[in-house]
Amino acid sequence: MSRPEFDLIHWIRSQVRDREPVRVGIGDDAACLRPPADRDQLVAIDMLMEGVHFTFPDATPEQAGRKALAVNVSDIAAMAGEPTAAFVSVALPKHRGAQFARRVHTGVIELAEEFNIVIAGGDTNSWNGPLVISVTLTGHPVGPRSICRDGAKPGDWLFVTGKLGGSLPTRHHLTFTPRLAEAKKLARMVELHAMMDISDGLAADLDHILTASRVGALLVADQIPLTEWALASTDGSSPLQHGLSDGEDFELLFAVSPEEGERLLAQWPETTPITRVGEIVEAAGCRIRYPDGRIEPLSPIGWTHSLDAEGQ
C-alpha cells in the first residue's frame, strides 16, 4: 500500500547528502550534528504562510520553498554567519497532491545546494488548509564572534547593501539572493559594530538596532538607494516612502566606525553596491534630513505582524 508521506520523505532523502557538520541527517529519529569546537552556534527560525508571505499563482511552488529557506539564510548572513544545516517542516494542502509537495521541496533543495547547506531533517504533514513552511537553520560565525544588533556606537556610519523598495510588486521577495557573500566579505574587511537584514523595512529594522544599542540615528533622505521600481512608482507613495517602509528587501543594514566606512567605500570589491545612508547619534530616536535641510522625526514605519483577531 502506498504511503504518500513516506514516499515524499524517501524522495527528499534521495535528493540530499550528509556532510559536516551533519553526522546523521534524514532517516533517523533525530539528526546528529558535530559543530566546530569553541564556536558560537547560530539558529534561525522562520515560518512562512500562504496568503501572507506568498500567494499562488503569483509564486510557483518552487519559489515558495526557496523563499522559506532564503529568509533564514538572510538571517544567518545578518549575524555574519555561515549556514550549515536546515530542518524543514511543511503543512501541505491535501488538494494540491504529491507533485506539488515535491516542487516545494525542490525549491528548498536547490537553494540549499547553492549555499552548501545540508537538509538534515524536518517534518511533513497534510491538512485542508493553506501551505505552511517552517525552516530552522543552523550555522556559525565566519569570524571570531557573531555580529548582533546591540553594538552600534555614536559616530558610526550606517550602510545598506543593494537598493530598497518595491520587493512585493516586482516579486523580488520570491527570487532574492541572500547577502551571504557580502556579509562574509564585510566581516573579513572591517570591524562590524551592528548588523541585521532588512525584512520589515529600513525604518522599522533600523529601530531594532537603535533600541538594542540604546542610541539614535540620523538618516539622509537623498542618500537612501532606491530601486528603479520605487523611483518610477505612481501608486501615490513617494519613492522615499517605498524605500523606507516597503520591506521584504532582504538587504543588509550595518554600522561601522567612520574610519572603517571610509575604507569600505574605497576598497569594496563586490558587485553588490554599499551605500552610506546616515550615522548613529547619541540622542534616542531616528530622524531624517531632507535635501532642503529640514530634519524631522522618522517613526519605525514598515511591515508589522498583527496579533489581533482582525489581523489574523
Rank of each mutant, 00 (worst) to 15 (best):
T170N: 04
T177S: 09
L158D: 01
E182W: 06
H172N: 07
G151D: 02
V160K: 12
H173Y: 14
L158G: 00
R179K: 11
A183V: 09
T161W: 13
G166T: 09
A152Y: 02
F159C: 05
T175W: 01
T161A: 08
K163V: 03
E182S: 08
V160C: 09
D150W: 08
L180D: 00
F159I: 13
P169C: 10
I147W: 05
R171Q: 09
K163E: 05
G162F: 15
L180E: 00
W157N: 06
H173R: 02
T175M: 02
T161D: 07
L174V: 05
D156F: 05
H172P: 00
V160N: 05
K163N: 01
D150F: 08
T175Y: 02
A183W: 12
T175H: 03
I147L: 08
R179P: 01
L174W: 09
E182K: 13
P169T: 10
L174F: 09
T161I: 11
T177F: 08
P178T: 05
G162M: 13
F176L: 01
P154E: 01
A181V: 07
G166W: 14
W157K: 10
G166H: 14
P178Y: 06
T177V: 10
G151T: 03
F159G: 04
G165L: 13
R149K: 14
G155W: 15
R149P: 04
T170Y: 08
E182R: 04
T175C: 03
G166A: 11
V160H: 11
G155F: 15
L158A: 04
R149Q: 14
H173T: 04
R171M: 10
H173W: 06
P169F: 14
D150C: 10
H172Q: 09
G162D: 09
K153I: 10
P154W: 04
T170K: 06
T161F: 12
K153E: 10
G155R: 15
A183L: 12
